[in-house]
Design a protein around this nucleic acid. Structure first.
Ligand SMILES: NC(=O)c1ccc[n+]([C@@H]2O[C@H](COP(=O)([O-])OP(=O)(O)OC[C@H]3O[C@@H](n4cnc5c(N)ncnc54)[C@H](O)[C@@H]3O)[C@@H](O)[C@H]2O)c1
Ligand SMILES: NC(=O)c1ccc[n+]([C@@H]2O[C@H](COP(=O)([O-])OP(=O)(O)OC[C@H]3O[C@@H](n4cnc5c(N)ncnc54)[C@H](O)[C@@H]3O)[C@@H](O)[C@H]2O)c1
Lengths: 232, 232
DNA sequence: AGGCTTTTGTGAACGTGTGCACAAAGCTGA
DNA sequence: TCAGCTTTGTGCACACGTTCACAAAAGCCT
């Protein structure tokens, strides 16, 4: 389940505060989910709760870490050391959660060789060797969008089976390779969408404020602006 | 719908290549979704397709932009100009999609005053005034996690109703305020989870490789490692 | 002009995820 | 030891999103 990391974070915070046990209600509130959902998620891992008491925090941290595969630490490689690659390389939050930045790579020979966060940026030529020697199985793509598919293909060919993609492109990969994407523009656009909804017919019923309009105007400009992009 | 931005991106690419029309099949492939799903999503906006031909690319771009509220451009403020805030400030990909970085803010007086990407970083003291004067309605939080909730509260108090949060915390906000989060650690943990599944019982049936074990051992260490975190 | 091909729009079945509600289970205190 | 209280684990119903499949519509070719 994709919510386990959330629970793990909340549990870690409790653990650091020395809290010995939590009820599903408390933990659910901390993670921002429904308590029944949380209990069902946890029961999927097995029955690790005590009725009338709750869950043992330390034990649950261990069980979830185990389920997520965080008892080992995963070497990750970051490809494309520009603005974003820099920020990720300097970010200390990975190491604390079972991930280790094993290598920084870039195609630009002016970038390769630089020291960033105590590591030397390697050139893409060394990709295959690095993946093999350091057993890297997770790759992070922070190259410009046009280069992303090519980089992805090379990563897959080198044996990487999990990719985190920051470039705004749909990557196609063979079966057995997992891709997750982080796309800021999409997040902002979704926010803008809701923002527009809010400001549309604020006082009255917030139902379908603008979407009902276009159907009413058969061929002319729907709202009077930008008619030049209308079809013939 | 959260998929509209994806369609919009694919359509923009087609538009730049001068393609006049697309079928739902082609567009679905480009966006990485099912064609029936795509048609249903688009039909939700109204009937903008021609049977036997497909959809007019330019027209659809306009309609989706309109639905998402991208015909206007949204001023955003970035709070916390550290590693990540820097990268976002330098990123050119926002402007091209209807977003404008209106202000950079930081609580550190050593950071405020610096010029980044042609803008002067402002101090948090000016937050309320900036939000009011520039009509900022979207805030991006890139401060350390412990500061996030406090910053969030100030943003909300200042009148911001949409927040994009990069700090690994659950933000609580009053009703009417939208929060979306981007959490790298969670993404990596999900990848690690699948990665572990793949490598677990690779040749045989990949069913529930490790989860069935703990129930069999009533009180001892479940698999022999890390017994010190087991409960009493 | 009329049939043929292509592609949309949508009805209906399906699967999944969510949340309520409650019985069973364990702890606590008398 | 036993009653009472708290909290888990889960059966069940419901709502949502996804996918198939097909009829209606539009263009095209003869
Ligand atoms: N900077 C941000 O805040 C931000 C935000 C959202 C999305 N993104 C996306 O992240 C990606 C990177 O953004 P950025 O601002 O860091 O860009 P950037 O131009 O600063 O950095 C890109 C780096 O990738 C390297 N590179 C180019 N082609 C390569 C290849 N084939 N193999 C290996 N390395 C290669 C370049 O040498 C450069 O160092 C882009 O796709 C961008 O759209 C960035
Ligand atoms: N750097 C990354 O690649 C990365 C990746 C994932 C998540 N994150 C998260 O993003 C956040 C920022 O990361 P970073 O590496 O940029 O951290 P950073 O320490 O480099 O930057 C944080 C900035 O926030 C400012 N700040 C602190 N408290 C503030 C407040 N109350 N109001 C306004 N500004 C304040 C600091 O002055 C600093 O400039 C963190 O929560 C981190 O967990 C970062």
């Amino acid at each position: 389940m994709a919510r386990l990391p959330l629970y793990l974070r909340a549990l870690s915070a409790l653990s650091e505060r020395g809290v010995p046990t939590v009820s599903s209600e408390e933990l659910a509130a901390a993670a921002g989910v429904n308590s029944a959902k949380l209990r069902k998620d946890l029961s999927y891992l097995g029955s690790y709760g005590t009725r009338g008491v709750g869950y043992d925090v330390e034990y649950l941290v261990y069980q979830i870490s185990r389920e997520l595969g965080l008892t080992q630490d995963w070497p990750v490689a970051i490809i494309g050391i520009g603005n974003l690659g820099h920020a990720l390389a300097n970010y200390g939050g990975f190491a604390s959660r079972g991930f280790r930045v094993a290598a920084l790579l870039d195609a630009d020979r002016a970038v390769a060789g630089q020291r960033i966060a105590g590591m030397v940026v390697r050139h893409m030529d060394d990709l295959e060797q690095i993946v093999r020697d350091d057993h890297v199985s997770i790759g992070v793509i922070t190259t410009p969008a046009p280069a992303a598919q090519g980089v992805c293909d090379r990563l897959v060919a080198a044996g990487i089976t999990s990719i985190l993609n920051f470039a705004p492109t749909v990557l196609s990969v063979p079966e057995g390779v997992d891709v997750r994407k982080v796309d800021l523009s999409i997040e902002l656009q979704i926010l803008a969408f809701h923002e527009q909804r809010k400001s549309a017919v604020d006082p009255a019923a917030p139902d379908l404020p603008a979407a009902a309009q276009p159907a009413a105007s058969p061929a002319g400009g729907p709202a009077g602006d930008l008619p030049e992009v209308m079809p013939a």
